[in-house]
Amino acid sequence: MSYELRDVSRRYGDGDTAVVAVDGVTLDIDEGEFVVIAGPSGSGKTTLLQLLGGLDRATSGSVLFEGRDLGTVGDRELAELRLGTLGFIFQQFNLVPTLTARQNVEAALAPRGLPGRERIEAARSLLVSVGLGARAAHLPSQLSGGEQQRVAIARALANEPRVLLADEPTGNLDSATGSELIDLLRRLNAERGLTIVLITHDTEIAASAPRTVRMADGRIVDGATSLRAASL
């Protein structure tokens, strides 16, 4: 089991102004699963993804990743986890605007302390694998939205993570580019056995996914059980 979430809530603020973004979610995700979390805006998808990625901590309940409760793990260990095990893709791409495509990928490799030449070669190779070998020296502002997102994918894959967490990765792309991106993620899931959790409100993507978890008002309304558990 990759993830086990038990009665997880995330509340912002206190008293009358308190907002419950995630409300009592229980969810299992198996290793190698391709899970799409769908739902309208404000349903708590992004908050749930941040809890899965150790970017935020649950107000109550437990988020277990490979048996470890992320709520009790220290900041330093969480950073280690994000560096070596988890990969992130964001809707806004979140590339560093002053760094080239290659340097953006290097930004994920640098904390591992790889020697310069090895790091540069690894970054180039990752860009080639997403079809951007020729654009390595370009700044994000010189790339299209689709190209930027592919740089972000290369960066997310830099440390060979076991889990890829994608927050509406097609949100800023046209439908053709979005489809290409989803195909790329599916290939990665199939070829490398990567666990992928993808957030979207695109119904087509949700419909074509092996497993879709639907959320509304911070709760899971469908798909909380993993495919393997469901088949037992």
């Binding site: 950073a79 992130f88 979140n94 560093v96 605007p97 930004a107 994920a108 904390p111 960066r155 440390n159």
Partner: peptide, 16 residues
Amino acid sequence: TRELGTLKALGWRQRL
């Protein structure tokens, strides 16, 4: 803020 947050998401420690 977002750039620095992204670096943290990539596994950069606070000290870095």
